[in-house]
Computed example of a mutant assay.
Amino acid sequence: MLFHITCILVALLFLAPILLVLLASFRPPAMVGNGFLSLQGLDLSNYGRLENFGAGILHYSGNSLFVAFATAILTIFVSVFAGYGFSRFRFPLKSLAFVLILSTIMVPFQSILTPLFLILVKLGLQNTLSGLVFIYVTLQLPFSVFMMRNAFDAVPKEIEEAARIDGVKGLRSLIYVMGPLVFPGIVSVGLFAFLNAWNEFLAALVLLTDQDRYTLPVLVTAVRSGHYGSIDWGAVQAGVTVMMIPCLILFVTLQRFYIRGLTAGAVK
Rank of each mutant, 00 (worst) to 15 (best):
M1R: 12
M1A: 14
C7M: 13
I8C: 12
I8S: 12
L13Q: 00
I18R: 03
S25V: 01
S25E: 06
P29E: 12
P29T: 11
P29A: 12
A30F: 09
A30T: 12
V32S: 07
V32R: 06
N34L: 12
G35D: 10
G41W: 08
G41I: 06
Y47S: 04
G48M: 06
G48T: 04
G48H: 02
G48F: 03
R49Q: 13
L50S: 03
L50V: 07
L58N: 02
V67N: 07
F69L: 15
A70R: 07
I76Y: 07
F77M: 15
S79R: 04
A82T: 10
Y84T: 02
G85F: 09
G85M: 11
S87Y: 04
P92L: 09
K94S: 14
K94I: 07
K94T: 07
A97I: 12
S103Q: 04
F109W: 09
Q110K: 03
Q110Y: 10
S111G: 00
S111F: 12
L116V: 13
L118E: 06
L120H: 02
L120Y: 03
L123G: 04
G124W: 05
N127W: 05
N127K: 05
L129G: 09
L129D: 10
G131V: 09
F134W: 15
F146D: 02
M147S: 11
F152H: 08
A162K: 01
A162V: 12
A163L: 05
A163D: 06
D166C: 03
D166V: 00
K169C: 03
L174T: 01
L174V: 13
I175R: 11
Y176F: 12
M178V: 00
G179D: 08
P180A: 08
V182Y: 07
G185T: 05
I186G: 02
I186H: 01
V187D: 06
S188M: 12
F192D: 00
F192L: 15
L195A: 14
N196H: 10
W198F: 14
E200N: 10
F201Y: 15
D212Q: 14
T215H: 04
P217Q: 10
V220E: 01
T221Q: 13
V223L: 06
S225W: 08
S225A: 13
Y228L: 14
V236W: 08
Q237I: 00
V240Q: 04
I249K: 02
L254S: 10
Y258N: 13
G261T: 10
A264T: 04
G265N: 11
V267W: 03
